[in-house]
Amino acid sequence: MMKELLEVRGLVRRFGKKTAVAGIDFTLEEGAFVGLLGPNGAGKTTTIRMLTGLYKPTSGSVRYYGRDFFSNQKGIKGNIGVVHQYSNLDRDLTAFENLNLHCILHGIPRSERKKRIEEALEFAGLAEHRNHQIKTFSGGMKRRLVIVRALLHEPRILFLDEPTVGLDPQIRRSLWDLIVKVNQVKSMAILLTTHYIEEAERLCKRVMIINEGKIIADAPPEELKKDLGRFVLEVFHEDGIEERLFQSKEEALEALKGCRETCKIREVTLEDVFLNLTGRRINV
């Protein structure tokens, strides 16, 4: 049996009258690769910030390896790596200096810092940019750097908050490779938030769907889709698209024959799962 790394119970966070996270529960094992999928404003960032000690929860508990997080923050934080939604590198410092700062803050001994930093830069494919100021970096380079920075202190779990938001599809793919490599090569657990369907489907072994601060589904992507059917027939009416679900391609093709408007068959995605659960789309 896998060892339990993280246990979240009844986690709530309010901002004034607004409830951003409305009581969520889940557990995470060592080496897991889990996606937290939901639309903008669902409470993904607020959740991550509570799990990493940046926000205090209004109520609920967070345990790492069975220890209460909020009363042992200093001891536990060394096991946690975080990549925020925005890049929070110092623009005036070089790549090396930014990584060195992280090493100092995490108490990595001086004798080991250089080796780890060079390794990280290599892993991210940024070795030649070691002494360049962050000002000169592209969005994709900054993303790669913040990801390997979060690994410098060798955490057991890496939180990635919308790691590919706002990047070109091509750069997004290269980041996916990097993230998968982190999970496989370093066997580090990953909790990734996203509002991109494809990212959750392609990368994550398990997906939690979050909406209005609540987790409304939690299973491997295939399982989430299975209950719904496997194929969708889209019928383009003048006043919108009608979607009909089928368990097999044959059934869908049969229905397509009787189609008088423009029709299209495609596979079920997590977007359909979300639509089915909430009556809304994730990306509008």
Partner: peptide, 18 residues
């Protein structure tokens, strides 16, 4: 500026420092 524009405090606050 470090806090609001560049979010640098997040880097301090996630580290095991008081």
């Amino acid at each position: 500026i470090a806090r609001f524009y560049f979010h640098l405090y997040d880097e301090y606050l996630i580290a095991p420092v008081g």
